[in-house]
């Protein structure tokens, strides 16, 4: 990781020194252990703060829409998928974007650490490759990185950036097809069970919209929840039905565009299982149209195209 961090820094500094770009979007060391934080470097000196670690969990494609000038981004596999999807939607000008691709085998989920340590506070970490040492007041615990990764990272088959201008680090080995086990389990529930599950899950929602704002694909000039005339949705968080409606619209709007990066779930302060919904749509798009968002610059987004033999299982047939 340290070697990659040094190379990222080097590459970014060079781009800025050579005036190939005006801005590099990457990660700096955050203020908490295992926490990267987005950094906007405009000078080689500022680029000195760039780093790479297991806490670089934000999807930086979110900061790239409608940018002026030449921009470089330090991008993991999922960031690149979103960049590809946004480029097709004319939100990013690929000619003005320089992608410093970093193959990624996963970011660490701090919620899983919390669970492992029973809520004890981590004050320092030591990355040892496959294992990580978590240190706090009066304890030091070694854990396997693989056990702490975000679920989205465990499921991810695109850790290697699908497009890049420079690559840092080594390409990851291919992973097996995903099985969508938890989605199949959800689908197997009865309607009443699903409704009960969603009502319980979305009773936690505080409508802070962190999920929406963390998502690179959520960029409507005016989100339907922010519209007051007409008021499409109740503004209070007290009504679980409204919370579910908000998520339902958000998730459907991402169908065929969502790269399954998990940014929404990571951003949620209340720990809502948001990916269950986004991933259900990822599975549907894959099953119905054999399509995945942002994996190729050439194909069209599944729901932005039409062919006469598109499957229509959702239509009521005579």
């Amino acid at each position: 990781m340290q070697a990659i961090a040094a190379q990222v820094k080097e590459a970014a500094k060079k781009l800025l020194e050579d005036k190939k770009v005006d801005l590099v979007v990457g990660f700096a060391e955050g203020s908490l252990p295992l926490r990267g934080t987005p950094l906007f470097a405009r000078t080689p000196e500022e680029a000195d703060q760039l780093t790479w670690n297991r806490g670089c969990e934000n999807n930086l494609a979110n900061f790239l829409r409608k940018r002026e000038g030449k921009v470089a981004v330090v991008a993991k596999g999922c960031d690149v998928r979103s960049i590809v999807a946004l480029t097709k939607e004319n939100q990013i000008d690929r000619d003005n974007l320089y992608i410093i691709g970093v193959p990624c085998d996963g970011m660490i989920d701090r919620k899983k650490i919390g669970k492992l340590l029973g809520g004890k506070e981590v004050l320092a970490v030591e990355d040892q490759g496959d294992t990580i040492v978590l240190k706090g007041n009066g304890f030091s615990e070694t854990a396997k990185v693989a056990d702490l990764l975000h679920n989205s990272c465990i499921d991810c088959r695109y850790g290697n950036p699908v497009v890049y201008d420079a690559l840092i680090g080594e390409l990851m080995p291919e992973k097996a097809e995903e099985d969508f086990a938890e989605i199949k389990e959800f689908e197997a529930k009865t309607t009443a069970e699903r409704r009960a599950f969603l009502a319980e899950e979305f009773s936690k929602c505080i409508r802070c919209y962190a999920c929406r704002n963390a998502c690179p694909m959520c960029y409507c000039t005016e989100c339907f929840v922010d519209c007051s005339q007409p008021e499409w949705i109740g503004k209070s968080a007290a009504d679980v039905q409204d919370n579910i409606l908000f998520q339902a619209v958000r998730v459907f709007h991402g169908a065929g565009r969502c790269a399954d990066c998990g940014a929404c779930e990571r951003a949620c302060p209340m720990g809502i299982n948001l990916r269950l919904l986004t991933r259900k749509l990822v599975k549907d798009v894959k099953v119905l149209f054999n399509a995945e968002a942002g994996v190729s610059m050439d194909d069209k987004a599944a729901l932005a195209t039409f062919t006469a033999d598109d499957p229509e299982p959702f239509l009521v047939k005579e």
């Binding site: 987005p38 906007f40 802070c208 704002n213 951003a267």
Partner: peptide
Amino acid sequence: EKIHEKCLGCGACTYLCPTCHCFDIVDD
């Protein structure tokens, strides 16, 4: 200009803040 740059504009900090108290009044 610099400070806000990475802020996503979500309400997590304000809603979890014990002193943030801005409110809006609506008729349902």
